[in-house]
Write a protein that binds this DNA or RNA. Sequence first.
RNA 1: UCCGGGGUCGUCCAAUGGUAGGACGCGGGUCUUUGGAGCCCGUCAUCGUGGUUCGAAUCCACGCCCCGGAGCCA
Length: 565
Amino acid sequence: MTSEAPPRNLDFIREIVEDDLRSGKHNTVVTRFPPEPNGYLHIGHAKSICLNFGIASEYGGRCHLRFDDTNPTKEESEYAEAIKRDVTWLGFSWDHLFHASDYFEQLYQWGEELIRDGKAYVDSSTAEEIRDMRGTLTEPGKESACRSRSADENLDLFRRMRAGEFSDGTHVLRAKIDMQSPNINMRDPVLYRIRHEDHHRTGDKWDIYPMYDYAHPLSDAIEQITHSLCTLEFEDHRPLYDWLVETVRVPARPRQIEFARLNLNYTVMSKRKLLRLVEERYVAGWDDPRMPTIAGLRRRGFTPAAIRNFAERVGVAKRENVIDVGLLEFCVREDLNKVAPRVMGVLRPLRVVIENYPEGQSEELETPNNPEDASAGSRKVPFSRVLYIERDDFMEEPPKKFFRLAPGREVRLRSAYFITCSSVVKDAAGNVVEIRATYDPATRGGDAPDGRRPKATLHWVSAEHAVDCEVRLYDRLFNAENPEEGGDFLEHLNPDSLEIVPDGKLEPSVRSAAPFSHYQFERLGYFLVDPESKPGQPIFNRTVTLKDSWAKKLAGGGGLARASV
RNA sequence: UCCGGGGUCGUCCAAUGGUAGGACGCGGGUCUUUGGAGCCCGUCAUCGUGGUUCGAAUCCACGCCCCGGAGCCA
């Protein structure tokens, strides 16, 4: 009778959340995504965003977007705006935008409270002295002489720090915990530092700013966060997190849970390295289609659904992981295959003259917009005597498994006619510059009344109707699986990560395609209309190639099948 | 060396003392007006050594290996 719930493989975080809900520890779940506005979001952040917003929505809770803006020297509004844009684009929304800087007053008051309770003190040592007294990984630290200051003296000093009476670096507020602790984070961590610097939101109101370790747990508590999810490197900070939410009289006690961050092969993910790629112009900007940033992926042609699906497939666990970028590519193909309209485009044009097709004549042929989706309808493409096909689709001396066009061979032109290559025209150097062919008028639409079936179907574009376009073919930015390994990561930059095709030929239906629209160029791959396109002069970014078993054969099978086209 | 984590197919993720399973990849087949997609089949793994148990990836012991940690960064 008891209807068993279908077995689900929950990740360890969702298990904890469900336990807490079941046990009544919480009756709602509140998570948060807390970026520092000092750089652009990347695919690793997407995992965290999907996790935090995903859990909130699955369990009927909330997820806050909170800017962890506690360091005015590194943070900018431009980054904050980009982050909001990216989170929204990914498909998530927050009902209220939070900032750690909104809590500065409360955080300051709690600082005074800690002082009064004898749990914090002002240290007037220099940064070097503090570092020296902290000890090492294997030796305990030493207590600062300032540790014994009276609460009154500490309060006075802390207030004067706030009032701006002291210059940068002269004093800090430290928690009084345990200089002997084997966990360095518990050796009287710094809570506040003096920074005479304007903050992008609070202006010149503050001369002291809280440290992450202090601001983060208390901000979580203020927002009644139930589960504070972060990456593994904060595991050592958890005792301090707990110390703060237990020691300070906060309205709630959030729990920090750590998971392994996402790593992707053939790219770099650290903000410092991404910033360097941008600043030193190895890429065109944060949204360069080769960047692993959300903005870059968007401009490359990845879809929010593909990224969300990717985030789900990579899972959540605590062991270090490196995800194969092939999985990301699989996810975008999977999505685009369902939704991208098909279109025909030739990247390396080879002229074909249909000798028995009347000069000056043309006709319109019907072709489906998406064979995967009948509701996408169909469109007409013009056909005439002179066409372009892909250079790679013709070989004068075809090897065994090459099924495409060759002298004397008949192939189908997609949704058009069967053609047979009758001869080739070469230039002085012996390069094939034109194919002469005949067509079979009885095969209009692509079927032969006698039932014969060519082994290949080629895409094509009518020369006189073609739209000229630029196509940007992107490949991975690095050619090493782990660019960080061995020497400078820049040494592994892939010199062929961008190839510009200046004279692609497209069917006329895409002449004024809107920026950011997705297409499949049949047999080639998925392409996105770049925002730099001008009316009538589209620019396309290749998102990803279609799987191509012939190209793979050429590449020797296995490994990194790069499209030859 | 101290503290904290982690070791399951090539790569990710599951199995919560009871037949090691899924996804991607790879290989093959089928289908095909995209050499795409789809469909079918197959390939491949529990860090090591002991122990507990009818039964261990799972529990215990001892090792080994990997990652993180000494910002007034987050």
